[in-house]
Design a protein around this nucleic acid. Structure first.
Length: 186
DNA sequence: GCAGTGATCATA
DNA sequence: ATGATCACTGCC
């Protein structure tokens, strides 16, 4: 198995932090996934943070259920669920244990949109609950040098209009190709 | 702009 | 058992 000297696998400690920190720090890293067509390695370009039960956009807001159980578990596991009956959403759980927080991966490489991302990588519920913090079915790697802060845009999250004031919070993180003019984007 | 799609969950 | 909801996408 080849190792890349310029990248390090994100271990369990990386995820055991607030979701908005993890969401930001994943930008510019790589999502690596073993697929039926080989190992894909895609730059993470878009993420969203879901902070916990107090976050009215978060699945954990109504307490643990069968679907969201993984969110309440320890950090560093994949949380995958089906949305609109068609699209698998790929998340990674963040800490601490007992707090239903996670980061949604909305885009990586040429795959734009959370549903297209999982479709492109062949990801489904079978990944749910498995470890993201090691070289398993899928994992993250980070470059030695983090991306410049000015390349990171923050906006409100997509598709959470039901969440009241929490719909407005700038918890979506987008990696810009060039340094943006403003720090926020509509 | 809105239909498709079906598991999940609250309600009963 | 039933109906509403839904962290989206593609085609109109």
């Amino acid at each position: 198995m080849s190792r890349r000297p310029d990248a390090a696998v994100c271990g369990a400690n990386f995820f055991d932090r607030p979701a908005d920190r993890v969401a930001r720090d994943l930008l510019g890293g790589w999502l690596v996934a073993r697929t039926s067509e080989g190992t894909r390695r895609l730059v993470v370009t878009e993420t969203e943070a879901y902070l916990g039960a107090h976050d009215l956009a978060c699945h954990g807001r109504t307490g643990p259920t069968k679907r969201n159980a993984t969110m309440f578990g320890p950090a560093g596991r994949w949380y995958v669920y089906l949305c609109y009956g068609m699209h698998w959403m790929l998340n990674v759980v963040t800490g601490p244990e007992g707090v239903p927080a996670a980061v949604l991966i909305r885009g990586a490489g040429e795959l734009s949109g959370p549903g297209r991302l999982t479709r492109g990588l062949g990801i489904d519920r079978s990944l749910d609950g498995t470890l993201a913090g090691r070289r398993g079915a899928a994992w993250f790697e980070l470059p030695e040098k983090p991306v410049a802060p000015r390349r990171i845009l923050r906006t409100p999250r997509i598709g959470v209009g039901y969440a009241g004031e929490w719909a407005e919070k700038p918890l979506r993180f987008v990696l810009a190709h060039e340094p943006p003019i403003a720090r926020t984007l509509k």
